[in-house]
């Protein structure tokens, strides 16, 4: 029997937190637009219900970029309909959510290949060829 098979459910209703987060994101996006200041909002540190998270996702919409990273579980990086606002979810090896972040930036750091690794790869490639 799985947890979801237990016929006892708790109520999950939006609490209004999504609106509060939208206000904060609006402020951050203006700062990015005006001064290039990047920011991150950590959704797991906020007392949000699953319904709140879903409501926020609906409000932000879906943009045109979607990337997946595979490293000890996956990471999903999606730009929202508001350009410069990215929804980043890191999953563990059992698909549990490790961290869920809204990044206000041109491109999340985790997508950029680090120079140390580029140098390591260049050496490896030179050895092969």
């Amino acid at each position: 029997m799985n947890l979801i098979d237990i016929p006892v459910k708790t109520l999950d209703k939006p609490t209004g937190m999504a609106n509060a987060v939208m206000n904060e994101l609006s402020d951050h996006l203006k700062r990015l637009a005006d001064d290039g200041e990047t920011n991150i909002v950590d959704l797991m540190s906020l007392p949000m219900t699953e319904a709140d998270i879903n409501e926020l996702a609906d409000m932000l919409g879906v943009g045109e970029v979607k990337a997946t990273i595979s490293s000890i579980g996956t990471s999903s990086i999606r730009e929202t309909a508001y350009r410069g606002i990215w929804w980043v979810t890191h999953y563990g090896d059992d698909e549990q959510v490790l961290s869920e972040l809204i990044e206000i930036t041109q491109v999340p750091d985790i997508l950029i290949t680090h120079m140390d690794e580029i140098r390591h790869s260049a050496q490896a490639m030179a050895t092969v060829n």
Binding site: S71, I72, S99, L101, D116, E117
Partner: peptide
């Protein structure tokens, strides 16, 4: 790098830790 742990995995670890510790946004990097 020598042990096959990518920088993205490393950054993911730091992001998770920073999130759990409520560190400032730039802390993970």
């Amino acid at each position: 790098i020598g042990n096959g742990v990518s920088r993205r995995t490393f950054l993911k670890f730091c992001s998770t830790v920073a999130s759990a510790m409520a560190l400032p946004p730039t802390a993970a990097t």
